[in-house]
Amino acid sequence: MSFTPTKETYSGKVYPVTIGTGDKAVTFGGENVLTFHSFEGETPNRPVIAYEIQDVPPTDWPDSVKKPFEGVSDDPVKWAKFCQDELKAAVIALRLIGTHPDKEDRSPADASKTVSDLLAAIDVPLIILGSNHAEKDSQVLVAVAEAAKDKNCVIGKAQEANYKTIAAAAMANNHKLIAMSELDINLSKQLNILITQMGFEKERLITDPMCSALGYGLEYTYSVMERIRLAALLQQDATMQPPMLGDIGMYVWKVKETHAPEADQPQWGSTEERGIAWEATTATSLLIAGAELLIMRHPKAVEALEKVIEELI
């Protein structure tokens, strides 16, 4: 019996999405095969990692991921410049967590100012995320989308409860949009349909099927991503063809394994290395499942991901 490799030819393709402007613009997606299957098709763009920063100091981040940003994280502009200039970030993801009513309840005007200041200071593409409070986000994201007009940012996240206002604002100001639903391929599909029915082009969407951390439901995100990607490639389902986001850092750095001191959990080993490994492991598995855009926190985890991506392409 002689061996002949079983290669797949897929009829569908993931949309390539470009964000940012000028020389620093980046493109991800665009493949017509499962991720890293360059042996049977085209994988024109490498996955992109964005560094996460916040509009307010990261008081609730564990020490090991606060430390690398000591001295800059008190000011979003300093923080972003540090990521861009020192860490060579390809993209910055600003999370406007300070606008959450339970945090500092910052106003849409405050958020817009932060965004304008950032855009003046950096030239890499910017992802602008709300605080995940559906009502507040629909005010904040509308204001910041306007403040960032024509900068080709990514605005997120539009969810079932607030997609209309956010998608309209992203559309009016020429941005890309993250559509997030909770761990269910049908919900993702439905939300993408609702958004495109408003006249938002599907080529400008990014699907976020919701991240989960290693050990805390990662397999749900993993399988939803695999299923979305197979639907895009095999069934040519256009509503499932936008690239996917893994919003890693936020989910990973709150689980116990990323901050429990070694003194409390001697069998778990070094807290710092454990946290970094937790973030990098979560991120790598979601890359394999199909994510093209990752939002991460720890510079060492990002560095490890870049190294593994280098080996994968």
Binding site: L214, E219, E257, Q267, G269, S270, R274, W278
Partner: peptide, 24 residues
């Protein structure tokens, strides 16, 4: 096989090998 590494790999293996049909 540092302890932190084992823990991350054990958790991943558990996640990938759980039964997708049984609600956890």
């Amino acid at each position: 096989i540092e302890k932190w590494k084992n823990l991350a790999l054990f958790a991943l293996r558990q996640n990938i090998y759980t039964d997708p049909q049984v609600p956890m």
